[in-house]
Design a protein around this nucleic acid. Structure first.
Lengths: 159, 159
DNA sequence: GTGTTTATCTTGAAGATTCAAGTGTTGAAG
DNA sequence: CTTCAACACTTGAATCTTCAAGATAAACAC
């Protein structure tokens, strides 16, 4: 291993701030959603993505990609949501090796009920105090970091 | 509940990009550290914070704050690291209700061994492709978001 | 065609995190 | 100097996530 270039002061400051956000944002979102709607942020993402999809339906692998999750994680959570009656799985008529996840009416009602408070929470946790310019900067930075992660070859999804 | 202000296109784009980073960065860091050093990113943070502290020692509550963790989470993880011989807990002579966590020599060796690759990983996952200007923007944005989370009153640490 | 690899998904066990409750300790109120 | 509340943890059970393995199904090699 070659000698690493250590982070300089500015990089370290940015890194610590980012880690703080990464470790605190998830729990904060979970906390609000569990309290007000009985679902985790990841549960919410699953049903929200389905609610925006054509026919409220997505292939499992597509849903995993859109929710930034491993197929394994998604499979377990969809099973849970299925027992709750919010999602239903059916074989894909187009291909026998893919499975479709479909949002039920109850699932749709759950998203509709949870969305307003969740959006307010996102607004107050993330966008409060940020200028319009900073919103654009955030998009550019986060998009670049996401690309870096994807190109790194480190596991971020599959298991 | 008042009618929420939905996110506009720019906000939604920033939000999706940020969620992608939040959900993928942790697993990517864990992946590299587990492969190369046998510890999770959170394990690493614990020993790294201790390694930078005076006498390699911190009170549990202080360590929890610095690692963005609940006391409960920290307590479980320190117990694990203790069985591995990297950390040791001792009563605080200054106050009978606080506990000190101390990094052992083995723990120090583990940090020193893991740090170079970890820093390279952080560099390639986060800073690669970001301009100097963007590093400063990231600090400002992440710091503001962290403040928002702390002021929200939603649980992000304790359990 | 047959065998091999790749893709999609599921499962169960192991490990990690949270949640709720419990143990002492300290400080504050009266 | 009691009582009561707040603080600093710890613990065990429930839940969530990952990891490794396995089940089909399609694609590919020959």
């Amino acid at each position: 291993m070659t000698t690493p270039r250590w982070l300089d002061d500015e990089e370290r400051e940015a890194w610590l701030a980012l880690v703080g956000v990464v470790l605190r944002l998830g729990p904060a979102l979970d906390s609000q959603l569990l309290r007000d709607a009985g679902l985790t942020h990841f549960d919410y993402q699953v049903v929200a993505m389905l609610s925006m999809a054509e026919d409220h339906t997505l292939r499992m692998s597509e849903l995993a990609a859109q929710t930034n999750a491993s197929l394994s994680r998604l499979s377990h959570v969809v099973k849970k949501l299925e027992t709750r009656g919010w999602v239903r799985r059916t074989p894909d008529p187009a291909s026998r090796r893919t499975t479709l996840a479909v949002l039920t009416d109850d699932g749709w009602q759950a998203v509709v009920a949870a969305a307003p408070q969740h959006v307010e929470t996102v607004r107050s946790l993330v966008f409060e105090g940020l200028s319009r310019e900073q919103v654009g900067q955030l998009t550019a930075i986060a998009t670049q970091v996401r690309r870096n992660i994807e190109e790194s070859g480190l596991r971020t999804l599959d298991g």
